[in-house]
Design a protein around this nucleic acid. Structure first.
Lengths: 198, 198
DNA sequence: GTCTATACTTCGATAGAC
DNA sequence: GTCTATCGAAGTATAGAC
């Protein structure tokens, strides 16, 4: 049950490596994070890292793909299980719950894309586009059902929604005033009902 | 009128340095940008940089302070010149116009804060807080005037608005479908009126 | 699977001439 | 105010023993 000590040497696996890397990448940025810090935090020597990965970039790629797989799976299954008139609110709360539970990975994925090789960057860009299409599809269906206004385009509503959700990841602190659940409630209110009185 | 050639050697000043640095910092991140690239883009030798600045960090600090000074001045004067019922829409369009006209500087200011020394970071944090208070004050006054709903807190409406505005800086491209003006119009619509039909 | 030791590269910044 | 030349520190990754 000793989670804090670096002496309790449980077997090191890639999951632990990815988690520690995401924390550092988010705090300091990918480029400023050194393999010395990473191995230090894990309680191993630098050279031991290279038994599990072959370059530092592997970690950034793994973080990016995992965070996108997570949010795509979580949001699409949550939305599909929701009643038709609750799909948008369900999307908002599933997105925030997932992104904020893996905040280090998600923030890193959103901001460090340019440090990947071109092949890997293309793979991450494609996966991000797939998620954004998923959100766009929900918006479009809600518009067709009359649940969202039709005088703005699907693209405009989708971009506004993603703005609202994505920037949250950069300022949210778990010890602050909000939980992911409370956040989803009032952000849903602002997005769906607007800031002017109804 | 030769703006593109590095042979037309106009006198180099700190403004040009800051501009070139902001472009690189946004494209590659502060930590990954080298003084070799910067001097190369400016058509001078590395050592010549240090006649104008003393460290690379000076440039990041200058970028952060300048972008915040710009947006505080632009938004507060625009809002003060607007009729009471147009202050929120004016804030949105002034914010977007300013931030997107200095997109490299603003994106850098928003994302690279942690690479400043603690004293300089504190100065930038304070200035960012001042801007956010300015926005919060507008939101609070609009609530008091009945122009914005009172069943959400000033803090919630302000955070939602800043989310909407700030993340835009990271995906907006001047050659895309939107101008800062058109963007401000539909983002104002989403924020003020909401995504559901009225 | 982790270690010690190190090869090799690139970095920010400085010295001092012109 | 820009140059040539270089310093010392720090980086990623590898070699090879255990």
């Amino acid at each position: 049950m000793n989670h804090s000590s670096s002496h309790a040497r449980e077997p090191l696996n890639v999951d632990k490596l990815v988690e520690a890397a995401a924390k550092l990448f988010r705090q300091q940025g990918y480029a400023a994070t050194t393999t010395r810090q990473l191995s230090g935090d894990l309680g191993i020597q630098r050279a031991s890292l290279y038994h599990h990965i072959s370059t530092k970039e592997d970690l950034l790629f793994e973080i990016s793909i995992r965070s996108l797989t997570q949010i795509i799976d979580a949001v699409s299954s949550a939305v599909d299980a929701a009643p038709p008139d609750q799909r948008m609110r369900t999307l908002i709360s599933a997105h925030l719950a997932t992104a904020l539970s893996g905040q280090d990975m998600h923030a890193t994925m959103l901001i460090e894309l340019d440090h990947l090789s071109s092949e890997r960057r293309a793979a991450v860009v494609a996966k991000r586009a797939a998620y954004e299409r998923l959100v766009g599809r929900e918006v479009g269906q809600a518009q067709a059902a009359g649940l969202l206004r039709g005088d703005l385009s699907e693209r405009q509503l989708t971009l506004a929604l993603l703005n609202l959700l994505n920037w949250t990841i950069f300022w949210y602190r778990p010890d602050g005033a909000d939980t992911p659940t409370s956040l989803a409630a009032w952000m849903g209110d602002v997005f769906l009902l607007g800031a002017e009185p109804r």
